[in-house]
């Protein structure tokens, strides 16, 4: 009997903290999402309706969705290519350490450089002089592309490391056997390496989504609380609701975002499960 709960005693202190700071107050958020902002009046789904019909919310949700759909495929493809390249040239494996540097350095430390680079009179326009007209990168529709590049620059190394670990797990015997049977590079890639990567892809995509929310740091530091409308993300909106003390909207919004995150997880999970089975 004593044995049965030993593990629980180890978990308890940490889990109590998680309960206290995250789970229990989340129940309160759930309650607030169906209550009026002031007082405890029950208003049903009114808050959700307000949030979903809110123009700022629609804009932010659209931008966030567009951002995810753009940057994640780009990041995954690019990092996979680089990982395959490194695998091909084993002598350059040390380079992957350099790729981690953007992930390691604090976002705040690079803001100054981004500013000097992206200003209307910044270094980037200097480099592009003669190729294009000067662009005001952060205050035009180009801001979206800048943010995508920023995200990829920061997370590339992380994902190269992940893909390399995935590639490393492919059994050598199978690769050797296939080469003996006369499989070319292309066959090896499409019929052995990529299928082997399929199970790890699930978590790699999840990690890419998780980290994508942190792009808010760069967006906020470069453009403040009300940036160019293409990069007005859910993170900005939530922050601004917080400053306005719109707790009712914030509660309903948090619930919706939690549902969306859990939904995406579930969907990916199902999708990959099916792939595995077939």
């Amino acid at each position: 009997m004593k044995r049965k709960y030993t593990g629980f005693y180890f978990v308890l202190p940490g889990f109590a903290g998680v309960l206290l700071f995250y789970l229990v107050p989340f129940l309160d958020v759930m309650r607030r999402s169906v209550c009026a902002a002031l007082g405890d009046g029950f208003v049903g789904l009114a808050n959700y309706r307000t949030v979903l019909t809110n123009e700022a919310f629609q804009l932010a949700a659209k931008n966030t969705g567009r951002f995810l759909l753009t940057c994640i495929p780009c990041l995954l493809a690019l990092s996979l290519l680089m990982a395959l390249g490194i695998r091909e040239l084993c002598r350059l494996t040390w380079l992957k350490n350099l790729y981690l540097i953007p992930f390691v350095i604090p976002s705040a430390a690079t803001v100054l450089l981004w500013q000097l680079l992206l200003d209307r009179k910044g270094a980037l326009n200097g480099i592009l002089e003669g190729i294009t007209e000067p662009v005001d990168w952060m205050n035009s529709s180009a801001a979206f592309g800048v943010l995508v590049c920023c995200y990829i620059w920061k997370n590339l190394g992380y994902h190269v490391v992940l893909w390399l670990a995935g590639l490393h797990a492919v059994p050598k015997e199978i690769l050797e056997a296939a080469s003996m049977d006369g499989a070319g590079r292309r066959e090896l890639l499409f019929h052995i390496l990529l299928p082997y990567l399929r199970p790890v892809t699930f978590m790699i995509v999840v990690i890419a989504i998780v980290n994508s929310f942190k792009v808010f740091r760069e967006a906020w530091m470069l453009a403040g609380s009300y940036p160019q409308e293409n990069i007005y993300l859910l993170q900005h909106l939530f922050n601004n609701w917080f400053l306005e003390l719109s707790m009712d909207k914030l509660a309903a919004g948090a619930m919706l975002l939690a549902l969306a995150a859990a939904g995406i997880m579930g969907l990916l999970w199902k999708f990959w499960d099916k792939e595995e089975r077939s």
Binding site: T6, F8, Y22, P25, F26, D28, Q235, A254, A261
Partner: peptide, 30 residues
Amino acid sequence: YRFPGRKAILWCYILLMIMPFQVTMLSEYL
């Protein structure tokens, strides 16, 4: 260790791990 509720706790941890800060922001504030 294996104990009752372990699976549930583990799932809580994984779910919380993937939630962006904006989801837990109000909870933490409260």
